[in-house]
Amino acid sequence: MENEKVVISSLVVEARLAEVEAVAATLAQMEGVEVHEVNGYKIVVTIEASSTGASHEISSRFIQIPGVLNVNLVYVNFEDETLG
């Protein structure tokens, strides 16, 4: 893993309250995705992926999970990509 190129981003995923735990469980199973916290209807996740594009691709799949209402990006670090 040392010096592997990685883009790290964090997001807040919003889900219907009744489905928030199930959504969190689904998210946690996705490659590169880690669930850090569930706060009411909000789920704090990070994505670690090889590029911005890959990160975006993963995040784009979140909305397809039943119960997900919104996906908010909070932080994205792409220094490996832009500093190359």
């Binding site: 010096n3 990685v6 790290i8 964090s10 807040v12 916290e37 670690e48 220094e79």
Partner: peptide
Amino acid sequence: MELTRRSFVKSTAVALASAAAAG
């Protein structure tokens, strides 16, 4: 990214999103 840097960046990412989600 070196592991120490990666660890720092990730903890930053989590802290920011956690704060954004709070309340």
